[in-house]
Design a binder for these strands. Structure first.
Lengths: 231, 231
DNA sequence: GTCATAGTATGATAAATATCATAACTTTAT
DNA sequence: ATAAAGTTATGATATTTATCATACTATGAC
């Protein structure tokens, strides 16, 4: 992890837009000055469960996973966050310490703003407050409703769902490199590693996907969608 | 459902406290005047999936369930909300329509505030905004983290967990009437009705609980806790 | 009351998934 | 280059859970 020079030059940054829309010019400059960018290598720990929440963290580039660590047993992945998602979406405003960890699945850069400063901005600017609430609620909603969606699927449905998630929402390509190993996919969908592997093999045998190690090519997307929807 | 006279006399109302702490006297009076109390009978629909979100709804008394309706299949219960929990915690600030329903499990009374009015208050008062965010985030966090907790348990663990949930968090008594039938418990923990019934029977045979129809008495709480923790 | 309906209960069986075992293949460290 | 460790893969088996079938019980409508 290393710190990078500060600039407010990211396109598509919702936070910046919120500021531009609702905050006066001189405050924006302050934000751009106090924000700290941090670069992480694949596998690096970005947030550690139990540590105090001191920053408002936003993903500028890369890909990260939020997960709960489990002593003996296997962990549980809560969500995969992509650029311009909040990284510390949970607990930021409701708790003092993180109750989940975040690590980088790919080389990633985060934007970090002092949480007290953001809180001051919220206090000072209700319109900004409303924008932040909207954004944060949206993320929580998505997690809750998607977890319900996944919960009712069998393992075929869940694996199909994950493959389509990466193809459509993350990489926007039917050919991509899985950022998770099979064990992590299992932790994400709540099934065992062996059965994830088995299911991928079955999809391969049925000609629905091609597997080259961590690289996946979706051959019959319609079929995969069908398995995801009805599985 | 019937409307009741408006008063701001509820003890323990977080919303009122938020107002008292952060809003000027004259505004509080306005809130108390515009708020509408609605009474619902057990089984009544409070919020219907798909309908527009127009109010900020707070549970004053009773017990409700939030759930997603599923056409053909069985539904899915998202959470049981008790008094002073927000009822429309999800989507209030992030969506225009409800994507879940709420019904009364017991006779219930809700406090309804015009959502646009609350939004105006948030815009006008950042400190109030921060209080609301804190409260809403807390509820979302709880749902997400508890669903992860439940997800890793087998059916014995899940049923034990639910029984302890009602005993400890809702009724604060080892003897209570289940507000859900067996099918609904199944919808809550994501298992089949038959297996919920079977598990309850096993707990009864093992002398862990006593069953009198919908009434449950927890006999060996320590054992039940153990099953919940390690099951 | 009694009829219909929903809810509770239990057993038998089928299906899904986990666990255990083993091996080939990859990556990492030395 | 090689050993060690981790990952992917597959089969055999055990366990868990769902499904199907069938009663029995409670509840509400008439």
């Amino acid at each position: 992890m290393k710190e990078a020079p500060n600039k407010c030059d990211c396109e598509k940054c919702d936070v910046k837009e919120m500021f531009y829309e609702h905050v006066e010019e001189q405050h924006i400059e302050v934000v751009c000055n106090i924000k700290i960018e941090k670069a992480f290598k694949k596998g690096d720990m970005i947030i550690e469960e139990g540590k105090p929440i001191e920053s408002f963290i936003y993903l500028k580039s890369g890909l990260v996973k939020l997960f709960k660590h489990r002593e003996d047993e296997k962990g549980q992945i809560i969500i995969i966050a992509k650029p311009f998602d909040f990284v510390n979406l949970l607990s930021v405003f409701s708790d003092t310490n993180y109750n989940y960890s975040v690590t980088a699945l790919e080389d990633s850069v985060t934007c970090n703003l002092d949480l007290d400063y953001i809180k001051d901005m919220i206090r000072a600017n209700g319109e900004f407050a409303l924008s932040i609430m909207k954004k944060i609620s949206k993320v929580s909603d998505t997690i809750i409703l998607e977890s319900l969606t996944v919960r009712k699927k069998n393992i075929h449905g869940r694996v199909a769902y994950i493959l389509l998630f990466f193809a459509d929402q993350i990489y926007e390509d039917k050919y991509f490199e899985l950022p998770l190993n099979r064990r992590e996919i299992a932790e994400f969908i709540g099934k065992t590693t062996e059965n994830v592997i088995r299911t991928l093999s079955e999809f391969r045998k049925d000609g629905i996907i091609k597997i080259f190690g961590k690289f996946i090519e979706i051959v019959d997307k319609e079929k995969l969608q069908q398995i995801s929807d009805f599985g």
